[in-house]
Structures are given as structure tokens and as C-alpha cells.
Design a binder for these strands. Structure first.
Length: 560
RNA sequence: UGGGGAGUGGUGCAAUGGUAGCACAGAGGCCUUUGGAGCCUUUGAUCUUGGUUCGAAUCCAGGCUCCCCAGCCA
């Protein structure tokens, strides 16, 4: 990395100090997802920090699944998460770990704490434990079982492990301070009894470690130097440190940083699940979802997501990123990446009356106007074409530069044409536009140098491919759906998916493969959806092009 | 009214005692065979009250606001 693009933030500064002071002589991090759901845009910040910090300092980053709660976790998610991280472009090498790998060691550590008089078996019920814990402003009180002898605790804990007790009957707790101002230090539960099959350890264990007990020790066992996590764990750091100190084992440094929110969406796993379960979207990979699977299907590249995350920033204060910022990075990436093609979403037939019937010319189009090295392709032009219905107005408003009766426009890389008349159906709707073509303007240039302001995209009617187009838009129509009145689901955007069946695209798209991204000129960016068949392509709109005409028109209407 | 964090343009991030800058968004313009892209210009901010200092976004004290914590979730 060059000095120029070296990232700097308070975490990297801290790591730098640790290296300079000799506290650590290397950097190792980990990304620790719980396999109970799909990764979303919020996780990318954590992934980018974990892998990015390690990379910046020549260190390593591992992937460790935090699978300490078999009631919620499933193998399916493990695979999905691995796939998503790989897709994003991060590599954990051979360092794929599971907290469940350490269950035996954790058990030994627990025995050690019990012997040191630092942990005890408690018979209080979950409800009683809550009552004894006190409140935010009142201290808790000691459990009547807190002073059991080491021998009794050892015996009881071993029997817990042997499966002698029912779920909820007993827990192992750390013996710290029931009056501690930090609730996490009021004798936190280390183990609970769960007679549940674990996705990796099967029925070997009737007891499972809690997050606080598993996480720091897992970090330590792996040799993690910097354990980066989100801000809500700040209050857990004293406990993280306490366990490590009591055990006297390698002591990683936990560093917290803030998560972010985005407008027009919800980020919590719980609500994402709700959206899927209640059928507001088609699944976890619905292109409207901010899951990695959803964004991938929407046609957003991993590079765009990473660039966006780079600009989110790292701090300790909660932030809400405007969706337009995300849009910017999506467009910026696609603008450079996507080849241009012609696609008409809402076709209106145009007949060129003075163009010979049956004649087909092949017009040369650049694949990318800003990058000639990407070559050209030939697109058929003929007497009958389709243009976008929005590109014709019988009664054009001010500043509308497109086609209208008597108007001349350029058919991009085709010809200059002038509208001579229209044909309407019984309902008065224009069904066909008639034009005359200027034969001297092949390619779209006027030999006399006259200026033609409007340029339209088009496809030749005979050769056009019929495709399905799915026009996606943001899932919510309120910037803060969780803060708005009523249920957040009340603000699901009813127009977030509009399926168009009769779209027409140029024939070169015949060979397009699933995942290929294109810019339909003047319309937006599209990707070939997995639902496509050899007979019929399905395109998802990733994002529309910026539409400054829409803004002008809106202002114009506003003035009336 | 316990403990822990955080307050800089509309949004997000910089400035680490010395000219408050960048990005996105907004506005205006140039250019254009995409009303795209690009280019130029531009509006707009240090939560508050005191204090220290030649000088404070930065240090100190008080106040205000917001976020997190009372799972046998992570």
C-alpha cells in the first residue's frame, strides 16, 4: 500500500501504537459471525475492518463462527456466509475456525476458574437470576448458592456436563461482584444447560458456553491480537479482560467501533427475517434486500460495496448513511464496468415511412463510449423500430428535447428522423409514431452541421429480443421506517418491484449469461437474473441512471 | 435518578493548541451522438455556558442532547 491511499482511523492508529510499543509484534484479527442468518451490508464494515487491518499491517485474519447457541444456528448459514465473504473478495486461507472447536478447552478453563473460587454453580431460575441482578440504578444481591464449596461446584458442574440436569435447572456463573455498576460484571452466566443437537458437535454437549465466556478465550487460543467488534460490546470489555486475567492466558486487545445505519432500509437481522418470513420480498436474495446475496442478485459488484464501505468511516458515534451515498458508489462502479446496450422498457412503435421495406443496415455502436478499447458491435436498423414511450410527447412541455410531432431527433448511431404523424387507438392513445429519415445522416451526424439536441435509444422491431425486466427500487418509501408512525412494514414501497413483460432489447444480448451487467443506455444498469432461461432472459434493474429530466419536469410542474 | 460511549455543513468523515477541509446530497454553469459520464463554480458546520491560552473543534469545568447495558442471545 502506498502512503497516498493508506487508510487511517483510530483503530489503525491504536494498532500502530501497539506495534511501536512492543505490546504486540504482529497483527491477527478475526471475523466472528454467528451462523444464524445472512450477511448484510452492515457486516461488510466489520469484515472490511477485520480483514483490512490485518492486511494493512502484514498480519492475518481468520474466519471464526461463533456457534455457541445450537438453538439458533444452522449449517446452512455457515455455507452462505463463507460464500458471501469469498464473493466480497476476502480470503481467510486455511484459518476457518469454530468456537465449538474449543468446547473441550473452554470446559477445562471453567474447571480452572471453579478451582480458583472464581465460578460457581447456581440453582436459581432464569427469572430469579434476573431479580437478583438488580437494576441499572440498584445493586444486585448475591445468590444463596454463591458460597458453595469448590468441591461442590466441581461436582455439580461435572454433573451438568454429564447431562444429569434439565434445561434451565442450573448454570455456571462467574463470581465477580453483584453490586458492580456494569451489569455485565454482576456474576455473568458462563454456561447454560441446553439439550440441543449442535450442528458440529452433535449431542456431545448438554451445556453450552455463553458468548462472553467463549469469545475472549477463543481469541486467545487462536492468538488473535486485536479483537475488533461493534460498540455494544464496549460494556463487555471489562468482562473480556477479567476472564483472560483470571486464566492468565494470552491477552488480546478488544477494540470497539460503531455500526452504521442507512436511510430507507432496516439493518437488524430480526427485521430482515421478518421481511422475508412475511413475504414482503421473495427471499434472502431478493434484489431489494441489503443482504450480500440480495445485492449480488441485484447486480451490485463486490468492488462497489467495498468502495462504499471505505467511505462510511470508522468512529464511535452512531451514524446514518444516506442511501444516495450508496447509490453513488453503485453507479460509479457500474458506469466504468458495464457495457452499453439498447433496451426499450416500455416500447412504442416507430415506422420510418421513407425507409425501404425489408432493408436492414448494421449500425456500429461503441461498447463503451468512454473506453474505445472495449470495441464496437453491430446493431440492426430497419424500417420499424421501438423507442421508449416516454421519449415521445404529443404535446411536449418546455425543455422536452425528445420526439414530438414535427420534431427532429437523433436515433443514436442510427439516423436523424423527423416525426410526421401518429396513429392512435380508439382510446386516443398513441400506438404508432411515423417519421421520415434523413438518408444523409447515417450514424447520426448531420452533414450540414445542424444541431439536434435529443438523442434516443431504439431497437429494430424484427430483430428485437423479448425479455422480462424487473424494475427494482428501494424497499422503503420512508427514510426512517423504524421511527415513523406505525409499523415499519407500513412503509414498504409498493413500487419497489415492477415487473415488465414486454421489454425489447437488441439482439446482441442473445448471448448474455447470468450475472452479466449492462447499461441500457439512457435507462439504467441491468443484470441477467438466474431466473433466465435460454428462451427468455430476465433482467433486474440494479439502479436507474440519474435522471435530470425528471428533476426539471418536477420543478416545471411545481411552478404551475 | 447507576455505568459506558458520542456530539463538526442536510448526511458521513477529517483537522490531534495555529487558515475548519474532503465526499455524498443541493444550487448554478460548461461540455456531450446517453437529459448518463466528465469538467468548473457555489450554498452550507464546530451542542451550550464559562475558563485556560497570544491563539481552542482540539485542553479544563458545568450544563444540554443522543446512543448502549437489567438474555440461561450474540
Amino acid at each position: 500500500m502506498t502512503a497516498e491511499n493508506e487508510r487511517s482511523d483510530f483503530i489503525r492508529d491504536m494498532v500502530k501504537e501497539h506495534l511501536a510499543s512492543g505490546r504486540f509484534d504482529r497483527v491477527q484479527t478475526r471475523f466472528p459471525p454467528e451462523p444464524n442468518g445472512y450477511l448484510h451490508i452492515g457486516h461488510v464494515k466489520a469484515i472490511a475492518m477485520d480483514f483490512g487491518v490485518a492486511e494493512d499491517f502484514g498480519g492475518i485474519c481468520s474466519l471464526r463462527f461463533d456457534d455457541t447457541n445450537p438453538a439458533k444456528e444452522e449449517e446452512e448459514y455457515v455455507e452462505a456466509i463463507k460464500e458471501d465473504i469469498k464473493w466480497l473478495g476476502y480470503d481467510w486461507g486455511d484459518r476457518l475456525f469454530f468456537a465449538s472447536d474449543y468446547f473441550d478447552q473452554l470446559y477445562e478453563f471453567a474447571l480452572q476458574l471453579i478451582k480458583a473460587g472464581k465460578a460457581y454453580v447456581d440453582d436459581l431460575s432464569a427469572e430469579e437470576i434476573r431479580e437478583y441482578r438488580g437494576t441499572l440504578t440498584e445493586p444486585g444481591k448475591n445468590s444463596p448458592y454463591r458460597e458453595r464449596s469448590v468441591e461442590e461446584n466441581l461436582d455439580l458442574f461435572k454433573r451438568m456436563r454429564a447431562g444429569e440436569f434439565q434445561q434451565g435447572e442450573k448454570v455456571l456463573r462467574a463470581k465477580i461482584d453483584m453490586a458492580h455498576p456494569n451489569m455485565n460484571m454482576r456474576d455473568p452466566v458462563m454456561y447454560r444447560i441446553l439439550h440441543k443437537e449442535h450442528h458440529r458437535t452433535g449431542d456431545k454437549w448438554p451445556i453450552y458456553p455463553m458468548y462472553d465466556w467463549a469469545h475472549g478465550q477463543s481469541d486467545s487460543l487462536e492468538g488473535v491480537t486485536h479483537s475488533l467488534c461493534s460498540i455494544e460490546y464496549k460494556n463487555h470489555r471489562p468482562l473480556y479482560d477479567w476472564f483472560l486475567d483470571q486464566l492468565g492466558i494470552f491477552h488480546p486487545q478488544q477494540i470497539e467501533f460503531a455500526r452504521f445505519n442507512m436511510t430507507y432500509t432496516v439493518m437488524s437481522k430480526r427485521r430482515l427475517v421478518q421481511i422475508v418470513k412475511e413475504g414482503y420480498v421473495r427471499g434472502w436474495d431478493d434484489p431489494r434486500m441489503i443482504t450480500l446475496a440480495g445485492m449480488r442478485r441485484a447486480g451490485i459488484s463486490p468492488e462497489a460495496i467495498r468502495a462504499f464501505i471505505d467511505h462510511v468511516g470508522v468512529g464511535l458515534s452512531p451514524s446514518t448513511i444516506q442511501y444516495s451515498k450508496f447509490d453513488h458508489f453503485v453507479r460509479d462502479d457500474l458506469n466504468r464496468r458495464a457495457s452499453r446496450v439498447n433496451g426499450v422498457i416500455n416500447p412504442l412503435k416507430v415506422v420510418l415511412d421513407n425507409y425501404p421495406e425489408g432493408k436492414v443496415e448494421l449500425m456500429e455502436f461503441p461498447n463503451h463510449p468512454d473506453d474505445p478499447s472495449r470495441g464496437t458491435r453491430e446493431v440492426p436498423f430497419s424500417r420499424e423500430l421501438y423507442i421508449e414511450r416516454d421519449d415521445f410527447r404529443e404535446d411536449p412541455p418546455k425543455k422536452f428535447w425528445r420526439l414530438a410531432p414535427g420534431r427532429e431527433v437523433r436515433l443514436r448511431y442510427g439516423y436523424l428522423v423527423t416525426c410526421t404523424g401518429v396513429i392512435k387507438d380508439e382510446g386516443g392513445e398513441v400506438v404508432e409514431v411515423h417519421c421520415d429519415v434523413d438518408p444523409e445522416t447515417r450514424g447520426g451526424n448531420a452533414p450540414d452541421g445542424r444541431r439536434v439536441k435529443g438523442t434516443l435509444h431504439w431497437v429494430s422491431a424484427d430483430q428485437a429480443l423479448d425479455v422480462e425486466v424487473r424494475l427494482y427500487d428501494r424497499l422503503f418509501n420512508h427514510p426512517f421506517p423504524l421511527e415513523a408512525e406505525g409499523e415499519f412494514t407500513d412503509y414498504i414501497n409498493p413500487d419497489s418491484l415492477v415487473i415488465v413483460d414486454g421489454a425489447k432489447v437488441e439482439p446482441s444480448l442473445k448471448e448474455a449469461a447470468v450475472g452479466d451487467r449492462f447499461q441500457f443506455e439512457r435507462v439504467g444498469y441491468f443484470v441477467v437474473d438466474p431466473d433466465s432461461t435460454p428462451e427468455r432472459l430476465v433482467f433486474n434493474r440494479t439502479i436507474a441512471l440519474r435522471d435530470s429530466w425528471a428533476k426539471i419536469e418536477k420543478q416545471y410542474e411545481g411552478k404551475q
